[in-house]
Simulated scan of single mutants.
Amino acid sequence: MPNPNITLVQGDITEQDVDAVVNAANSSLLGGGGVDGAIHRKGGSEILAECRSLRASRYGGGLPVGHAAPTTGGKLLARWVIHTVGPVWQPDEDRSALLASCHRESLRVARELGARTVAFPAISTGVFRWPVEDAARIAVGTLREEGEGFEELRFVLFDKRAYDAFAAAL
C-alpha cells in the first residue's frame, strides 16, 4: 500500500495552516494545559461552545480515552479541531492500543470531515508522561498503517527532543 505523506515540523500546532489540527484533549473537552490549553486560547470561544455542546449531547461523561470528536477551528488557521483523549502512561500496564486508537480515530474523523491535511501533536507525552520515543513509534506506525489518502499528515513537535524522537521513528 502507498506510504502516506508524513512530515515533521518543530513549532506551534496552533499556527499550522492545515485542514484539521488534532488536540491532545482531556476527557472534559473544556480545555486544560499544554496543547489543549493553547488550542482553546488561540482558537477562541467557538471551540469551547462546541465542546460544551458535545458534552451536553454525546459525551455527558466526557470523551473516552482513545476516541475522537470534531469541532470548529474557531480563530485557528485550521478549519477543524479533532479532539482526542490520550492515555496516561502506566509503567506496569501496556496501553499502547489506546494511544494508537487516538491516531486511528483522529484519522477516521478527518476522513469524515473531508480533511486532506492534518497536524498531530505528540499525544500523551506531556502531563500524561508517555515516553516520547515510544509515543513516536506508536504514532508514526499508526499513521503509516492507517493514513492512506491524505495529502499530508504532519507531526508538530514543540521541542527538539520530541522532534528528534519522531524523526528517528520516521
Rank of each mutant, 00 (worst) to 15 (best):
I138D: 06
R58Y: 05
E152Q: 14
P131Y: 10
S53L: 13
S96G: 12
G32Q: 11
E15V: 03
A69M: 02
E46D: 15
M1D: 04
D36C: 15
H40R: 04
D164S: 03
F166M: 02
Q16A: 13
N26C: 10
F120W: 08
C51L: 06
P4E: 09
P2R: 11
P2F: 05
A25N: 10
V156W: 00
G44H: 04
D17G: 01
L48V: 04
T84A: 06
P87Q: 07
P64H: 05
L157G: 03
W80F: 14
E105C: 08
R144T: 14
E46W: 00
G34T: 08
R108M: 06
E146H: 14
L153F: 02
E133W: 04
G66P: 04
G11D: 06
A139C: 14
V132K: 15
V85H: 04
G141F: 08
E152V: 07
V21A: 02
G11P: 09
A25C: 10
A69Q: 02
T7N: 13
A49Y: 00
W130V: 08
F120D: 08
A139H: 05
A68T: 03
E112S: 09
G141A: 10
R95F: 08
G61W: 05
S53K: 15
R52D: 03
V118I: 12
N5I: 06
L63P: 05
R108P: 05
G73D: 01
L30P: 02
F120K: 11
L48M: 13
V81M: 02
Y163V: 00
A69D: 03
I47E: 01
D164K: 00
S124V: 06
A135R: 09
S96N: 09
G114N: 13
V22D: 07
D19T: 11
V85P: 04
I123D: 07
L48Y: 07
P4K: 10
V109R: 11
S96R: 14
V81C: 02
E105Y: 01
R161Q: 10
V18T: 11
S106V: 10
G11S: 09
K42R: 14
V132P: 06
W80V: 00
A78L: 00
V22H: 05
L157H: 01
A25Y: 09
G33N: 06
V21D: 00
S27M: 08
D94G: 09
E152Y: 04
V85T: 07
H83L: 05
E50R: 05
E15R: 15
V109Q: 13
A110M: 12
N3Q: 13
R55N: 08
E133A: 14
R137I: 10
